[in-house]
Computed example of a mutant assay.
Amino acid sequence: MYVGLGLPVTDPKSLLDWATRAEAGPFTTLGLLDRLVYDNPEPLVTLAVLAGATTRIRLQTEVLLPPLRETALLAKQAATLDRLSGGRFVLGVGVGGRADDHVAAGTDLRARGRRMDEQLATLRRLWSGEPYGDGAGPIGPAPARPGGPEVLVGGFKPRALERVARWGDGFLAAAPPSWAGGLFDTVRTSWKEHGRTGSPRIVAQVTAALGPQEVIDEARAAMGAYYASSGVADYMVSGMRTTPGEIRDAIAQFEELGADEVMLYCFGRDPEQADRLADLL
């Protein structure tokens, strides 16, 4: 079982410390969330900085919201990051659902799913070296990974789960073990129905905080603030694992369900959590 770290967003200057600690430990991936109307660092810019401070660990958006972005530029940014990191970039995507993000981006919230389908098709074409279209040729650079960086698709609804088989390489599951298994089964079934060979890579997510009580309290407050407008803040915060036993149990449950990797998502800023989590692993 591989284990990655989801990085906190409330203290961008600490992320280099997080990254170097994670690189020195047993972690396989660094993940970073995406919002527009929120006090978080832009993920592609930030992961590019972290790529320069690391050599082996993967760099993953978890998840980036393509409908907020112009497609050709996103193709170029993702390919550039993949090339400069030596193929370590993983593009995790989702449609998002915050209306204010779409207001700021000037995009249509109601059309976000259809727009992302079109974007994913275009990204795949451009990363394969095909011309953009009439009057516009190919968009470089060529990514390090043939066909483009690995694409993981997040979501919960049937249409979102189908996108994994249509456009993705795997599934990002921000769901507890109690109902993630059903999502995994749906994704695997859709994968076969679409004639895909092999198996989708399954990446699960566990929110975690490990350390003194003030670290846990800060993490809960930060997570509550992030989900404040969602209507499910209390539910999300209640799922945070805060002891070594709880974290190990969650990883074991996802391993039993057949997940390939678990991302331990940290909302608390203290970078020493990376060392504590490494120790319990």
Rank of each mutant, 00 (worst) to 15 (best):
R159I: 03
A48H: 07
P177D: 01
T243P: 06
K76G: 06
P41N: 03
E272A: 14
F156A: 13
D100H: 12
D11N: 09
A75Q: 09
R124T: 14
A221E: 14
P141K: 12
A160M: 15
L161I: 06
E162C: 02
E261I: 06
Y235S: 14
D185G: 04
Q253E: 14
V153L: 13
V95E: 12
T71Q: 07
P146S: 10
E62F: 14
W18P: 09
A53T: 01
E193D: 13
V93I: 03
S14H: 09
L59N: 06
T107G: 00
A99W: 10
G268M: 04
A222T: 08
V151K: 09
L120D: 02
P67K: 07
T29E: 11
G181P: 04
T55A: 12
K192N: 05
P146D: 01
G6L: 05
G231Q: 07
T122V: 11
S128W: 01
F254R: 07
D217N: 07
A19K: 11
P138M: 00
L5R: 13
A208K: 09
F254H: 10
V37M: 12
G147Q: 03
R112A: 01
G4S: 06
A274V: 13
L91D: 00
E42S: 10
V206I: 11
D100W: 00
A165L: 03
W179Y: 14
D101G: 06
L47R: 15
S238V: 02
M1P: 02
G182W: 01
F267D: 02
D17T: 15
D108T: 08
P146L: 01
G198Y: 01
D270A: 13
E118N: 05
K13W: 01
W191R: 11
A136T: 02
L109G: 06
P8M: 05
Q60H: 15
T71F: 05
D101I: 08
Q205E: 09
V164Y: 08
G86D: 00
A160W: 09
Q60G: 00
G168C: 04
A174E: 04
G133Y: 07
A208T: 13
E246T: 08
L68Y: 12
R110G: 04
E246K: 13
P176H: 02
